[in-house]
Amino acid sequence: MPHIQLTPAQRKVHRADAHHLDPVVLIGGDGLTDAVKKEVDAALNAHGLIKVRVFSDDRAQRETFLATLADELNAAPIQHIGKLLVLWRPLPEKEKAVDEDRKPGPRDVKLLKYSKKGGQRPEVKMVRVLGNERLTSGGLIKRAKKPTQKSVKKTTQK
């Protein structure tokens, strides 16, 4: 598989994003083994943008490592600086499990209570609202009303 081609502007953005990252895969004296390729592939699936540290003094060998990883894992080579290699691959789309019977869960809501005096700061309170509750405009939490059951006798008499 050929590696992903990026424009210089895209490469620049990824270099900037990778600046603060730490290496997640280390390539030791054994070189580019199948286990190392598997770990780099797993890291690309998890993070998308990764740094790889190579413990080798041979610059040409590090360049071949970068080209090999990019070709075999369908990734874009972003940067080779010193003993660090930076690779990028778009994250795979995660499938969400759609459950139609699922109700909304609890959520945290920031509640502001303003003072009657104009010069004071509003009181900030974090409130957890459950799925069957709602927050009124006055800042109160109210439960949803249950549907009232109608009598079978009353419906048949009419």
Rank of each mutant, 00 (worst) to 15 (best):
A9K: 08
L91P: 09
I141F: 05
E133L: 04
H14K: 14
E123D: 14
E93V: 12
K103R: 10
L6I: 14
V129E: 03
R121G: 10
V52P: 02
L26W: 05
P23A: 04
S115N: 08
L111G: 05
V13D: 10
R107W: 02
R134M: 11
D71L: 11
L49Q: 10
M126Q: 14
L26V: 09
T68Q: 03
P23E: 00
S56W: 01
V52H: 03
V98H: 09
R59I: 07
A76G: 06
V98Q: 11
D17A: 15
P8R: 13
T33F: 02
L112W: 15
P90M: 07
P104T: 02
G105A: 13
D17R: 14
T33P: 02
A35Q: 12
H3Y: 12
E63C: 07
R102K: 09
Q10M: 12
L130V: 01
P92I: 09
K125F: 08
V54S: 04
F55H: 13
N74R: 13
P122T: 12
R102T: 03
V24A: 09
L49I: 10
G82K: 06
D71K: 11
H80E: 14
W88G: 07
G48F: 07
E63L: 13
H14P: 00
R128E: 05
K96W: 07
G139F: 02
V109N: 10
S115Y: 01
L111D: 04
H47F: 07
R102H: 05
E123I: 11
K116C: 11
R11A: 13
R128Y: 03
A60Q: 06
H14Y: 15
I50P: 00
P77V: 03
D22P: 00
K12Q: 14
R89V: 04
E100P: 01
L84Y: 10
R121P: 06
L85F: 05
K96I: 08
R128M: 07
V25M: 02
E72Y: 06
K38R: 11
F55V: 06
G119H: 09
G119V: 05
G29P: 00
V24Q: 06
L85W: 02
K110L: 13
A97W: 07
K12M: 12
V98P: 01
A42Q: 14
K113R: 15
K113V: 08
A76Y: 01
K37L: 13
I4D: 09
D99F: 07
K83C: 01
D101A: 15
L6N: 14
R59V: 08
V25E: 02
D17N: 14
K116Q: 14
I141Y: 06
P122E: 15
D34N: 07
G131E: 06
G31H: 03
K117T: 11
V24W: 01
L6P: 08
D30R: 06
I27E: 00
L84C: 06
H47T: 02
K96Q: 11
S137P: 07
G138H: 06
D57Q: 12
L85R: 04
K94L: 15
A46C: 05
K110V: 13
P106R: 14
A9S: 11
F55C: 10
L140K: 15
F65L: 00
H47I: 01
L49F: 13
H20G: 02
K103Y: 05
G139T: 02
A9F: 05
V124K: 11
V52E: 04
K110R: 09
V52A: 09
G28P: 04
R15H: 10
